[in-house]
Write a protein that binds this DNA or RNA. Structure first.
Lengths: 159, 159
DNA sequence: TATTGTTATACTCTATAACTATA
DNA sequence: TATAGTTATAGAGTATAACAATA
């Protein structure tokens, strides 16, 4: 009422352009769909996202302490505790006392956990294939290259 | 113990390769960092992510019904209800009865809500700038192009 | 009977911090 | 006193479905 009509369309256009050309917006959309899809894949193995990433971390670095796991994955200590409780109950990992210090636990995959990993890798492969499906092979490589650049230099801790 | 040592390194290597070359893994990492950053930007305006995307949707399509908002943003009906409660309490939007049907509400920005949008656009701009900062200008365009391809064809509903 | 929107409820996640046992 | 890990608890977010009012 107290503004000329011409003001409104501009705001609307700005919103449209912002949504349709914003890297962040598209990134979140894509990641959200990707996560939902991955969750349903993991569900078939009785795993949640947190379980999956902890298993991956342990496969890469067996005998990691809980603190190390948390730091690498940016998970809170209490989250690591609970995820390991669940994984231990499923017989996929086991905690052992560190030989040096009796307050740190070193975590290992069980044989069963190790036996599970190949199918987990399979899932990741399917997931990535599906994610990149819409792109030409060349563009797929390009997307990977850019993602690598964008995620590499990130934190102060090189990692 | 009951497996030869040579088996283990292979699994470990596979995990490492999987993590460092997986588009999905990097995508989730990047999106998570991006979301955290955006949340803290929005916090300065007393907004949460849901509030922000609903405001964007309304700016683009004032007078949308709650169902339409929910469909466009993939938010559950009860979420839309509650977000609108909050935004209405902040004086940023208002619900009006539809003229045709007395059970659908049409939602509009208030003048105050409209006044807020320019700074919201500003935030989005900063956010995207920061997100793409590590890439050359050319690569930034390339990343946008690929994201557009990846998010466009998605669902059965064209949208 | 189906739709729009609201509300109650339960469940999961996350965050804070208190706590135990070490060092 | 600081660290590793656990646990209790509160708060936020999400999901289910019951509900009121329309159509």
């Amino acid at each position: 009422m107290n503004k000329p009509d011409s003001v409104h369309p501009t705001l609307c256009d700005q919103a449209h352009v912002t949504r349709t050309t914003s890297a962040g917006w598209m990134l979140q959309r894509l990641a959200c769909m990707n996560e939902t899809r991955m969750q349903s894949r993991l569900k078939a193995h009785g795993l949640k996202m947190d379980h999956f990433i902890v298993l991956m971390a342990l496969t890469e670095k067996e005998g990691a302490s809980q603190t190390e796991i948390g730091e690498g994955l940016r998970l809170a200590g209490y989250t690591v505790s609970r995820v390991l409780d669940a994984l231990e109950k499923q017989g996929l990992v086991k905690r052992k006392q560190d030989e040096q210090s009796r307050r740190t636990h070193r975590v290992f995959l069980t044989d069963e956990g190790r036996g599970l990993m190949p199918s987990i890798f399979g899932i990741v492969g399917e997931q990535n294939k599906e994610l990149l499906d819409k792109l030409s092979l060349e563009d797929q490589g390009e997307f990977l290259r850019l993602l690598t650049l964008l995620t590499k230099v990130t934190g102060p801790g090189t990692n």
